[in-house]
């Protein structure tokens, strides 16, 4: 390999890391979704929400201001914490949530790594790792509230992981592939996943709400019980990162949801070999669908209070698990009889 291709290859990698689907995209997505969350809640609550920070665009820069403030605040590392775990865990949590984006395509010709037939598996593996670092965060803080938060996270993690995997597995059974692009192609040629298996879609939605800590499953960060839950002892950028992680996860999940259930880049198809119709517009379509899903999920904050831990765990092991098993059975039946 000559030196120039190597440099180009490095630049391309850097672009992936920094711009798309890397940190800049994440920043933009998180800023927009936090702003959207606060604005939607404010709309329901008969008020303006963030406004003065940038009056012309409705205060959309609010989260950016918060981020700036966090970035330059004093970093406090309490005496009795497990220092390395305390410092590294939020970063790793954020990193794994972000890396999962590599395997989630937002267009038919888009892939960061070499084309893979196992993108669904890779992304799921990375997504499932993140809560483990959340538990590390709670354990390292040496704070009783964080500790209880970590325990709650553990309980919920165990009780909602199986339904999550089963709901994806049932889609895998229907589409007969481990690749998102193939899955979308399957939907484009037949019906979107939400019609093929509504039970799996419902399970997935519930699991999304729970894993990203949206209401009514805002249990690990229940502020009237546990101050800030896991992140009680965190200040400055660490807290900023920790607060952003659920939103990154939310973005991941919403992309997966729109790819597996909402038909991906429908109405565009693979056949158009045009950079605009083949690459950019499908990407925009997927992201818009993901944003709609995210907006629906953050809207729940305005409607529901939070469940108790035991209620959430109980429903996880009973209704949601049952629902996911039914969704697998439905998929098997469909594959056997319909196709």
């Amino acid at each position: 390999m000559g030196i120039i291709p190597l440099i180009l290859w490095l630049i391309q990698d850097l672009l992936y890391i920094i711009i798309f689907p890397g940190l800049v995209t994440i920043l933009v997505v998180v800023v927009i979704i936090i702003w959207l969350e606060r604005k939607i809640a404010a709309k329901v609550q008969m008020r303006f929400g963030p406004l003065w920070v940038s009056k012309k665009i409705g205060g959309a820069l609010q989260s950016l201001a918060d981020l700036l403030r966090y970035s330059f605040q004093e970093v406090i590392i309490p005496e009795k914490t497990d220092k390395w775990a305390f410092i590294l865990a939020p970063g790793l949590m954020f990193a794994f949530a972000t890396i999962a984006l590599i395997f989630i395509p937002v267009g038919p010709y888009y892939s960061v790594l070499f084309p893979s037939y196992y993108t669904i598996l890779f992304s799921l593996a990375l997504i499932i790792i993140t809560p483990i670092f959340a538990i590390t965060v709670g354990w390292a803080s040496d704070n009783k509230f964080s500790f209880i938060g970590a325990l709650r996270e553990g309980f919920l993690l165990i009780s909602y992981e199986i339904p999550f995997l089963l709901s994806v597995v049932s889609m895998v059974i229907i589409f007969h592939t481990y690749d998102y692009i193939n899955a979308v192609q399957n939907q484009l040629s037949f019906l979107p996943g939400i019609i093929l298996n509504p039970l799996a879609a419902l399970t997935m939605l519930i699991v999304m709400i729970r894993t990203t800590g949206r209401f009514p499953f805002d249990i690990t960060e229940a502020d009237s019980e546990l101050v800030m839950g896991l992140f009680t002892e965190y200040s400055a950028l660490f807290f900023g990162v920790g607060m952003a992680t659920p939103y990154v996860e939310l973005y991941n999940f919403s992309l997966i949801f729109s790819l597996l259930f909402l038909g991906g880049w429908w109405p565009f198809t693979l056949n158009v070999m045009n950079p605009v119709y083949g690459l950019i517009l499908p990407g925009i379509i997927v992201v818009v669908k993901a944003f709609i899903v995210m907006a629906v999920l953050v809207f729940l904050r305005a409607v529901y209070p939070r469940y108790r831990l035991d209620q959430a765990v109980r429903s996880g092991w009973s209704y949601v698990l049952l629902l996911s098993i039914l969704s697998v059975i439905l998929s098997v039946v469909e594959v056997m009889f319909l196709r």
Partner: peptide, 16 residues
């Protein structure tokens, strides 16, 4: 009561 259960909407409505 609303804010204690986590529903900011009820808090805002009631105070409004």
């Amino acid at each position: 009561f609303g804010i204690f259960l986590g529903s900011s909407t009820v808090y805002m409505w009631a105070f409004g």
